[in-house]
């Protein structure tokens, strides 16, 4: 089990109901995509937030990554919707 800090923004944060948390992840969670699939098993709120998995953006240690990226060694993983700044 590896422990990781998760942070959520915008409607992902609202649907999950918290801005951050620390979770112990099972060994089977290798990639960012695995993480999304695992989180969806944790409850309705995660399912609602991550329903459209392919639109969810992932950042590891504050850098954008693809869903195929390995999460080993990540201090902070952020999940958020497509960005709308500017």
């Amino acid at each position: 089990m590896a422990s990781v800090n998760l942070v959520y923004f915008a409607w992902v944060r609202e649907r999950i109901g918290r801005a951050e948390e620390t979770l112990e992840l099972p060994e089977s969670v290798v990639t960012a995509g695995d993480l999304l699939a695992y989180l969806k098993t944790l409850g309705e709120e995660y399912e609602a937030a991550l329903e459209h998995e392919n639109v969810i953006r992932v950042a590891i240690n504050q850098e954008h990554v693809d869903h195929g990226e390995k999460i080993a060694g990540a201090r902070e993983i952020a999940l958020f919707p497509p960005m709308t700044g500017g």
């Binding site: 915008a10 409607w11 950042a59 952020a78 919707p81 497509p82 960005m83 709308t84 700044g85 500017g86």
Partner: peptide
């Protein structure tokens, strides 16, 4: 900046109805 900088806009409606997150 618009597509990669991590910012998200939420709208507040003038009529007081619940606003929503702006879609990309």
């Amino acid at each position: 900046l618009k597509t990669a900088a991590p910012f998200w806009k939420k709208e507040h409606a003038a009529d007081g109805s619940a606003g929503g997150w702006v879609s990309a």
